[in-house]
Design a protein around this nucleic acid. Structure first.
Lengths: 105, 105
DNA sequence: CTACTATTTTATGAATTAATGAAATCATCG
DNA sequence: CGATGATTTCATTAATTCATAAAATAGTAG
């Protein structure tokens, strides 16, 4: 019940708790990618993508490196990759009963 | 890359991505508990706790059952318990470098 | 240094979410 | 049924988050 750990975990979950950001992460799970490519693939504004990347990076979920004038992003480590895979697999399973029933038990 | 799965996962993460809600979940991970007890332990308003429980339940993270006039909540299943434990353990590890450095690589 | 491309930062308005008082519901007891 | 205690729902306000345009920064080429 360490409040610091709870807070850290909450921030992490919150960063993951957004469709567009999760989409970026799953895209990155296939391999490193530069901002322009993400912008093109996602069909979003540059600043929009950049903001999402910034948030993900501030929570330590992704890393970046610069190559000439391009900046490439990738998942921070294998742990993030695993976390993503688990979450998506589990969510696929849960899709059936995604609207919870009203009764108890 | 199933958009439905991504959306489901995002909703799940979002429900988890809040300190007060995570606190409730960790409390419940020690065992079933009724609303009054949570209200007392957390020092929050009844309606506040109830709203948090509702959100957690709507995402399938907790279950409830009624015993006479009291309503008891518990984690939905062992999977949620495991997810919580992993997240908190991992966040404890990460506490050192929770403020990411500015440099690349 | 100038021009150009890639990316980030800043500022802001719109949309979403969270907390809470008040009213409603639900179960139990007399 | 009427009163009481436990919990939920509703409505509203306050706080947070999101998307984006505009401005700034950084790298590269000439």
């Amino acid at each position: 019940m360490d409040p610091h750990a709870i807070d850290r975990a909450a921030r992490l979950f919150r960063a993951l708790g957004d469709g567009p950001r999760l989409t970026i992460l799953t895209y990155l799970s296939h391999g490193e990618c530069c901002v322009s490519e993400l912008v093109q693939v996602l069909g979003e504004k540059f600043s929009t993508v950049s903001q999402r990347l910034r948030l993900l990076r501030s929570e330590g979920l992704i890393r970046r490196r610069r190559v000439a004038s391009h900046v490439y992003y990738q998942l921070a480590d294998g742990h993030v990759q695993q976390l993503l895979k688990n979450a998506l697999d589990h969510s696929l399973e849960l899709n059936q009963n995604s609207i919870p029933m009203e009764d108890d038990e």
